[in-house]
Amino acid sequence: MTMDVAAPRADLGPSLPRAGRLGRVNWNWLGVAPFFLFAFLFLIGPVLYLVGGAFQNTEGAFTFDNIIALGSPNIVASFSLSIRLSLLSAAMGAVAGLLLAQAVILGGLPAWVRGAFTTFSGVASNFAGVPLAFAFIATLGRLGLVTVLLRDLFGINLYASGFNLFSFFGLSLVYLYFQLPLMFLIIAPALDGLKKEWREAAEILGATRRQYWQLIGLPVLAPTILGCFLLLFANAFGTLATVYALMGSGFDVVPIVLFQQIRGNVLYNPNLGYALALGMVVIMGVSNTLYLILRSRAERWQK
């Protein structure tokens, strides 16, 4: 089915005179038909099926029961946990990434420093999932190198002082490993877009450095920063493998609950699972849409 996608084009090609479009049926859309067919079958269709299922009971009749059931305490708790974790890790990533980008790009460091961070960030932002969890266990787990070194060399017992890698905060620290570089990568062009002349114009008009950042620098960056924050939020919200590898199936963020539901371990009502999926798609969709809107606004300014 997927093998013959190029075929219609071959038949169409020579028979399509450029000038003859008006009087005849326009066949050009056929060229994109394979793509739309694929997208409908394997992307839009499955999602629509879940969305439809979210509004049906097990007999297939229309109902709001599943949506209402999302209000049950354990589901609300997992959405709340997911959202809090995503907010915290997005906030940490956004602030740390902005500070790093500011230091590396505007801080007067040599150019190779930026190059090194950019290359590394490209890798680290894609280094998620199971291996990342392993790396942090080897670092900050109970027998991790840093844990052990701090204990043996400095007498600091991390775990006795309340730190735990396998916790809400520990997890957000792990997320930071891919959130920070992602933020760095997407905020860097925006910092480049801050024109040197803006700072000079502000300065010559009497503004201090602080006033410049307060009145021009940060307001100009604001849509970008907020947009990046939303992107990081969505990025964290959809993360499953990292949590699963680090915490097992017991840490009830929404993707894990859905994962367990699919495996048939938790919920016995598939339609409630559909509603869970719908909730995830809505949250991801809203944050990504806002991101795109904010980005286009920022681009307009930085023309």
């Binding site: 499955p46 999602v47 099926y49 919200f237 959809g238 499953l240 999926a277 798609v281 991801m284």
Partner: peptide, 13 residues
């Protein structure tokens, strides 16, 4: 926008 877990859930169903 569609998390993998949602996508595969749709596939299975």
């Amino acid at each position: 926008v569609v998390p993998p877990v949602v996508l595969v859930f749709g596939y299975i169903r």
